Amino acid sequence: MLSERYVPVNPLATAGFHVIGYFLNWGLFGALCVQVFLYYWAFPKDKLFLKLVVYGLFALDIIQTALITKDAFFKFGTHFGNVTIFASLENLWFSVFVINATSGAIVQLFFAYRISVLSKSRIVATLVALLAVAGCAAGITSGVRAKISRVDNLSAIAFGTKTEFSVWLSISAACDIVITACIVTILSRNRGNGLKKTDDTIRKIIWVTVETGTLTTLVAILTMALTIAFPEKALCTILMDIIGKIYSNNFLVILNRRMMIVDGRSIVTQSETQQDSFCFSSPNTNRSATSETITEVKIEQQVWPKNNDSKEEDM
């Protein structure tokens, strides 16, 4: 069982980190809403399996944001002035530990499936799937252990569960590294076929994969380092609140990368008034040079003449 004697109670040191974590979580949730909106309009013909993954992640993020908002109102609203509440656990065991571990595992399992399809080999895909499941199990275990403990102090909980927490984040980081390396290797082998458009598309996908994989890996490693180095200050709460949102946003960024913006900018004379309207066309598989579907986002311009011109026409 956890005990508060492990780490001195320092609730004031955790209050500011809580606020930063809440703000970042809300901001990333807003970005995720935009990503899901774009996906909904741009890719209505995606497979049902892919849609279930996207909307399932979105549902988990809605639940997490609602629980975090409830905790924020409880600590800084109804119990404002009670400094001991700042370090209380509340719903963090589920909103941060369980949901973040589940969201990360869902994204990693999806990429394990994609690796098996692209490489036509189940060995690496199985390794990625095992790492994803093991990391998810460690994350859920740390959350359950924090819940069943008799301690309601984040500093003591961070110290007492740092083993499970470190195992979860280290496995998650290793899984992200394996996923990034595998996808980059597979896509790199398909380059050099003489088609410039195909090579450019593959190069862009590689860069997006490296960027998103590097981001999740760095966040996991930094969170683990802060947990081990500064458990009494609960610095890790800043990144703990947004790990799941980072996985979800990165996943939607990769999916929405198939979308193209056509005629995004054009010259309009001073005698014209411009009103932009976005029109999402349906996916066209003939435009795709790879296995991914590219959808065009066309910006149409509606232009009206000035009032003087309209009067002259009437005369």
Rank of each mutant, 00 (worst) to 15 (best):
G30L: 12
W304S: 08
N250W: 01
R145C: 07
S116R: 14
V98N: 05
A72W: 02
S172M: 14
P283G: 13
I157F: 00
T285F: 12
F80C: 11
M240H: 01
S142K: 03
R114M: 09
T163I: 12
A158N: 01
T126K: 15
K196S: 11
A129T: 08
N25C: 15
S3I: 10
A146P: 03
I179Y: 09
R5T: 12
K45N: 12
N249W: 09
N308D: 11
R191L: 07
T295Q: 10
A156N: 01
Q35W: 04
M259C: 14
D71V: 02
K233H: 00
Q301G: 02
K204F: 08
E292Y: 13
F73A: 10
V83P: 01
R258P: 07
D200A: 11
S170G: 10
I243K: 05
G27H: 06
T217A: 04
S142E: 11
I228Q: 04
H79S: 14
P8T: 01
R145A: 13
M240V: 00
E90C: 00
R145T: 11
T65Y: 03
A13V: 03
L215W: 07
T14M: 01
Y55A: 09
N153Q: 02
V151H: 11
L60Y: 02
A174R: 08
N190A: 06
F43Y: 07
S88D: 11
E296F: 14
I238P: 02
L130T: 03
